[in-house]
């Protein structure tokens, strides 16, 4: 295999591997807001107070409103017995406007 062919092939594979991360990038934009970051910490603390395993909660949406920030998660619990059906969790945290 020629070096030039390898470089082209690896470049294409690199782009393919990077696409899933690039598709997630827009969902990270709300976290540039300090209010959202602060609300996220409180939301995680609230999830813990309700007994959920944080590592099983995948954040799917962040909605910033005038006086609150709402977070949506999909909760997937797995154990030695198998996986429970996914559940949707939603928490809205009041913020200072």
């Amino acid at each position: 295999m020629q070096t030039r062919t390898t470089i082209i092939l690896c470049s294409l594979l690199t782009v393919m591997l990077g696409i899933p991360s690039l598709l997630r990038a827009p969902s990270m934009v709300p976290f540039t807001d300090a209010n959202v970051r602060g609300a996220a910490m409180e939301a995680m603390a609230q999830l813990r107070r309700e007994g959920w395993w944080l590592v099983n909660a995948d954040l799917t949406d962040v909605q910033k409103k005038d006086d609150e920030v709402c977070f949506d998660w999909i909760y997937r619990y797995r154990s030695g017995s198998g996986a429970l059906p996914p559940r949707t969790l939603r928490l809205c945290i009041p913020t200072q406007s």
Binding site: I7, T14, L17, R24, A25, F31
Partner: peptide, 23 residues
């Protein structure tokens, strides 16, 4: 240098993965 090029390419996917997975 193709070796340096390969190493740079190999680091790009994780460079995108880390900031988009805040966990």
């Amino acid at each position: 240098d193709p070796i340096a090029g390969m190493l740079i390419l190999s680091l790009l996917p994780i460079a995108l993965y880390l900031p988009t997975h805040p966990g």
